[in-house]
Amino acid sequence: MHIRDDWFTVERIDEDTFAISEYGHWENVHSYLLIGGRCAALIDTGIGISDISDVVKRITRLPIKVLTTHVHWDHIGSHGRFDDIYVHELEEEWLTDGIPGLPLEQIRRDVGRDISIPVPPSFDPDRYEPFRGKPTALVRDGDTLDLGGRALTFLHTPGHSPGHLCIYEEKRGYLFTADLIYKGTLYAFYPTTDPSRFVRSVEKVNGLPFVTRLLPGHLDLGLDRAFMADVGRACRQLAAAGLDRHGTGVHEFGSFQIYF
């Protein structure tokens, strides 16, 4: 299957798993579509510059369950195009009311800057509004979802945000890490973040029994368990030095940085 789209890039991970990416924006955001026997899961819905549901419909006609890794604007942009939305219980109010202390003007600046390809005619950064709405389901650590032949487990991995989730498909060894682990700058310096919990979350996923591939929320798609172990060692080093706290700055580790 080859999907052409002016904004999104669709890459096939396997026969029924797709990365839907926004390489024309500085965030390089990835959303993921997982096809099951009864329904499909869409892990995050991107920035909202273009409507991701149009791409999803070209891949599958199955009912879609949107699985929100965390309620930041670059991961919930097309939530309003879907009816069935899951979110961790600690971020329900963020989804309904917005993130306290985050000005709309700042979001609009970040949405509209450093775009390298043409945007859809309907997009206007000065009119951009982050999604707000009520989820249909709240999840907790360890909850599972069966798509029909595909079982997913929600892992509560706070630190980058209070209700951040990684999604684990143990049978295939896929770990969808969202903003916890990727090759770039890992952020836990905002007031709504928690560096010590971030470190514990990285340790938590490093303890999973079987991981063949990391599927992150940003930048490089080709990550494996060895990279996750590298991030784990870095976090342990920071914690041992007492640096897992706000205000200690950017810590460099070669192909990635951790910003506390």
Rank of each mutant, 00 (worst) to 15 (best):
S161V: 00
A178E: 02
V66P: 07
A234I: 01
G163E: 00
P120G: 15
P125C: 09
P158Q: 11
S161W: 01
D141C: 03
P195L: 10
T144F: 05
F176V: 01
H164F: 00
I3T: 12
D224N: 12
W7R: 14
W94E: 06
R12S: 10
P135V: 03
T9V: 04
P195S: 13
G142Y: 00
Y190D: 07
E15S: 13
R150P: 04
L238M: 11
E15H: 12
D110L: 12
G24E: 15
E105Q: 08
H246F: 07
N206E: 07
L214M: 05
E169D: 04
G173V: 04
L147S: 05
L223I: 08
E27D: 15
P121Y: 07
P216C: 00
L90H: 08
K171P: 01
G24K: 15
D51Y: 11
A239C: 02
K57V: 00
E89Q: 05
G98S: 11
I20E: 14
T45M: 02
V231K: 13
C235L: 02
S21P: 09
T192Q: 08
T157S: 13
A41H: 10
G36L: 03
A41M: 09
T136H: 02
T68M: 05
Y23Q: 14
Y128C: 08
I107R: 10
G46I: 10
I117C: 12
P162R: 14
F18W: 13
V71T: 09
E203S: 03
Y168I: 04
R132G: 01
A226E: 15
D114Y: 15
L155M: 11
T17P: 08
I64H: 03
V119C: 15
D83V: 06
E93K: 03
V71A: 11
G249Q: 01
T136D: 04
T96E: 03
F210Y: 04
I47L: 15
G217R: 09
G142C: 06
D146E: 12
G148C: 00
Y182T: 09
T157C: 14
I117K: 14
G159E: 04
L180E: 07
W26D: 15
I115K: 12
F82Q: 02
I59M: 10
R61L: 02
C166H: 07
